[in-house]
Simulated assay, not measured.
Amino acid sequence: MANTALWMFIVSNLLVFTLGSVLTVLSYRAQKRLDQDSLKYTTLGFGLITASIVAEALYAPGIGGGDWLVARHLLVLYTMESLFIAAGLGCIAYSLLSY
């Protein structure tokens, strides 16, 4: 059962990382093609959201030697991930407002 959970964690993070990376690259290419400064924030936003997945994937297995996460460490992980996502969504919102 633990092996299945680990593979689900790996596959889901790879999927989100891949899609986030594709959106970041597409946003960057659109910004270069259209020469719109507001699209820089869209690229930054998608990059921050993708970075939240990277931070989670690197931080979670390292807590407690890979054992179950304790509540305090889990709270730090979720807070860190939420801050990355909030900053990314804020950048995307700013980009849309200034377009």
Rank of each mutant, 00 (worst) to 15 (best):
Asn3Asp: 07
His73Trp: 10
Leu75Glu: 06
Thr43Ile: 09
Tyr28Thr: 11
Leu58Pro: 04
Trp68His: 10
Leu26Asp: 03
Gly45Phe: 09
Ser21Asp: 02
Thr79Phe: 09
Thr79Tyr: 05
Val22Lys: 03
Phe84Glu: 01
Gly20Trp: 05
Val11Asn: 01
Ala51Gln: 01
Gly62Lys: 13
Thr24Gly: 05
Tyr28Pro: 00
Ile49Ala: 10
Val76Met: 14
Ser12Asp: 04
Trp7His: 04
Pro61Glu: 05
Gln31Asp: 06
Thr50Asp: 00
Ser98Arg: 12
Ala60Tyr: 10
Ala93Thr: 08
Leu14Phe: 02
Cys91Gln: 09
Ser95Asp: 07
Gly65Met: 08
Lys40Phe: 09
Thr18Asp: 00
Ser82Cys: 07
Trp7Phe: 04
Pro61Trp: 07
Ser98Trp: 01
Ser38Pro: 04
Met8His: 10
Leu97Cys: 09
His73Met: 08
Lys32Ala: 11
Tyr59Gly: 03
Gly64Cys: 12
Gly62Ala: 12
Tyr94Trp: 10
His73Phe: 06
Tyr59Thr: 07
Leu6Glu: 13
Gly90Lys: 06
Asp35Arg: 14
Val70Thr: 15
Ser95Gln: 04
Phe17Cys: 11
Ala55Cys: 05
Tyr28Leu: 13
Leu77Gly: 06
Asp67Arg: 10
Val76Gly: 09
Thr42Trp: 11
Asp37Lys: 15
Met8Cys: 11
Thr43Ser: 12
Leu77His: 13
Leu89Cys: 10
Asp37Ser: 15
Phe9Asp: 07
Thr43Phe: 10
Gln36Ile: 01
Met1Ile: 06
Thr42Pro: 02
Ala2Cys: 09
Thr43Met: 11
Ala30Met: 12
Ala60Phe: 09
Leu74Tyr: 15
Ile63Lys: 15
Gly62Pro: 05
Ala30Leu: 13
Ala87Ser: 09
Leu19Val: 09
Ile92Ser: 02
Ala71Cys: 05
Ala51Pro: 05
Tyr94Glu: 03
Asn13Thr: 03
Lys32Thr: 13
Lys32Val: 15
Ala87Val: 03
Ala87His: 02
Met1Gly: 05
Leu96Ser: 10
Leu48Ile: 04
Leu83Gln: 02
Tyr28Arg: 13
Val76His: 13
Ala60Leu: 14
Ile10Gly: 00
Gln31Asn: 14
Ile92Ala: 05
Ala2Asp: 12
Thr18Pro: 02
Tyr94Asn: 06
Arg29His: 12
Asn13Ile: 00
Ser52Asp: 02
Ala71Ile: 14
Phe84Arg: 02
Val22Met: 11
Thr4Tyr: 13
Leu77Gln: 11
